[in-house]
């Protein structure tokens, strides 16, 4: 069982030291061995549950929160916006 820890870490935005990588690789191999114990069944077809329909929301506007309340937990705020390191525009 080859698990590409580096690739998964990149996808999950996590960073590991080489020692941690090794540790995680070993632990994940054990866990993956455990979760592979699934029954042999046909798993084709879409994952959808028609017996569980949803009630939709009416298209109505409701305003309950001020900007200050919503940004109160933000690590860095400037000019009414949260701030992140400069991004290359995408």
């Amino acid at each position: 069982m080859e698990i590409d820890i580096k690739r998964l870490a990149r996808l999950a935005k996590l960073k590991f030291t080489p020692e941690e990588e090794e540790k995680y690789a070993a632990q994940m191999a054990n866990i993956v061995a455990m979760v592979e114990k699934l029954p042999d069944l046909d798993a084709s077809g879409p994952l959808i549950d028609p017996d569980n329909p949803m009630e939709f929301r009416k298209d109505e506007v409701e305003k309950k929160y001020s900007r200050d309340e919503l940004l109160a937990n933000a690590p860095e705020v400037q000019a009414g916006c949260v701030v992140v390191p400069k991004t290359v525009a995408e």
Binding site: I3, I5, R7, L8, A9, L11, A12, L14, Y24, Q27, M28, I31, V32, V35
Partner: peptide, 13 residues
Amino acid sequence: VKRRIMLGTYVLS
């Protein structure tokens, strides 16, 4: 938490 995030990322990748 990191272990489970990694496992979850793996099974969805």
